[in-house]
Design a protein around this nucleic acid. Structure first.
Lengths: 239, 239
DNA sequence: AGTATAAATGAGTCAAGTTCAGTTATTGCA
DNA sequence: TGCAATAACTGAACTTGACTCATTTATACT
């Protein structure tokens, strides 16, 4: 018989890859990079040690794959959430909550990925670079549109806003995780996100309410007008 | 003769420790944690491998010592710089520049320290916790005084402001380091710090000029008054 | 000078990542 | 259906590198 099981070869391979990834995730999160044993991962996944190397070049590549899977989920969640929102404020607030929650969940994993994410030597071109690029593209497009609408300040490079946004959030998560070990209550993602947004709004020059929803003061209106005017001048000057 | 050299025993020991630390710093920065070989560090420092273990418990402890030395320099620089400044804005701007410059210099090392700094498991009580605590104490006292003066918003917990501050700066450094590999010009610490401060000021509710230096608008004055009043109420209510 | 103690050494141990020659399963084809 | 050909898998052997320890060398004290 050509197909002893009701699964195609490809399916069986992907199933195994998934099993290995899941086992590796567990082991890495539990014991850290050095502490995680290849032998333990193989055993947990139900394969021989050698088999593991048919799927992943080495231990580092295995970690990269685990992190990559996390980034894929993260990016999908961000893109999906933003798609259903229209206001700049609503979108940024969503991204903040989403990032915060996701990082709280997978903090142990992210901590392991940091040296790769932060070691500039061969970072560009590495798999991690691609992960990150896809993820922040969601944020970038939200901000670009926000600037075009006049909702956000346009006197800083985009990457600076991005660094302020994700930098604040990630440090908050770190603080929350360190406190969690000692504090009684687990960190509240919602309230952390609210606090972070209350710093990010003024940092980004973002008004809380959508302009059409709130009675604007003369000063707000003037500020917004200036931004749109300045942007129009930029666009006009460019061609 | 009791002292073949003109150095005391203690001095020779510290000299060796210094040599080992310097060699380890080099090796870690060059090759990363795993890539750094104990044998290479020992050779570079001019000692036998076994000797190294008389000074440091293991490879991790060696890295911790190297990072600790960096944090000590960082903290001293921060404290000294702040001591000569009076305005909240000037102090924060200095801390931003100082942090940015120091991180740009020692980025490779910091990247290695991240997993320790970020792995919450046994972080509290670890040497890293102490390093960090001493360092951020400088920032914290600046902010506390800034709040007391009414220069800064007081509706957020201190750690949130801290996370916004250092999170933004560190992400900026990361971005700068990643770009540096490709971009022609090296990242300008000064201009990065200025940009970051232009986000941090509104995020912290900080006016640019010292209040006595600039002609305040009625609204500014009212806002400042409210902050001081609110703080007084808190203090009064506490006893 | 002689002895006790501190410091240093580097060959040896051991754990763990990686490889590879041999084995088993799967597929395409006559 | 049976038979290559190829893909997938295995685990024992190899290799590397952190760490230990019996031994040697230097230093301090009397």
């Amino acid at each position: 018989m050509a197909n002893s099981n009701n699964k195609t070869r490809r399916e069986r391979l992907e199933e195994r890859e998934g099993a290995i990834l899941a086992a590796a995730h567990d082991e890495f999160v539990r014991h850290g990079f050095e502490g995680a044993k290849i032998a333990a991962i193989a055993k947990r996944a139900g394969v021989a040690e050698g088999t593991l190397y048919l799927y992943f070049r080495n231990k580092q590549a295995l970690l990269a794959a685990v992190v990559g899977a996390f980034y894929a989920r993260l990016t999908r969640g961000a893109a999906d959430g933003v798609a259903g929102l229209t206001s700049t404020d609503g979108r940024l607030a969503f991204l903040a909550r989403h990032h915060l929650k996701s990082c709280l969940d997978e903090w142990a994993l992210l901590a392991l990925a940091m040296p790769m994410l932060f070691t500039g030597k061969d970072y560009r071109g590495s798999e991690y670079f691609g992960f990150n690029r896809a993820y922040v593209a969601v944020f970038d497009s939200v901000v670009r549109e926000g600037i075009a609408r006049g909702d956000l300040r346009n006197d800083l490079p985009l990457h600076m806003l991005r660094d302020g946004f994700y930098g604040s959030l990630e440090h908050s998560v770190r603080t929350a995780m360190v406190r969690e070990s000692s504090a009684a209550q687990p960190p509240e993602a919602e309230s952390l996100a609210d606090q972070a947004m209350s710093m990010i709004r003024p940092a980004f020059g973002l008004r809380r309410q959508a302009p059409e929803a709130a009675g604007e003061s003369m000063a707000d209106l003037a500020q917004r007008f200036e931004r749109v005017a300045s942007r129009l001048e930029q666009v006009a000057g460019r061609r």
